[in-house]
Amino acid sequence: MPTVKFIEHNGTEHVIEGEVGDSLMSLATGNLVPGIDADCGGECSCATCHCIVDDAWMEKAGKPSETEESMLDLNPDRESNSRLSCQIPLTEELDGIVVQLPEFQY
């Protein structure tokens, strides 16, 4: 099974195994990784599952949809490799992906 490494703002690392198709958001909340709020439950409509994807993985993670783009854009802490973790489904190709969690969710 593919794994994801979540790195909290304070540096704490969590390596989580998941099934193909699980979103990174559901892996984090399902395994009590702090730092993802996910108020809307994965509907791409709250932006409280913001994460920063390690540069090396940006391309494999795909491009944000228009809806995700409009939500991300409202976050003043957005970085060039910011994504909403509920919009990244796990694939075999993403095995080992590294994402940073921001200090705060809005």
Binding site: D39, C40, E43, S45, C46, A47
Partner: peptide, 12 residues
């Protein structure tokens, strides 16, 4: 927090 009181989407 899974409630509608704050709305959702870009006007949340």
């Amino acid at each position: 927090r899974h409630h509608l009181s704050f709305g959702f989407g870009i006007h949340r």
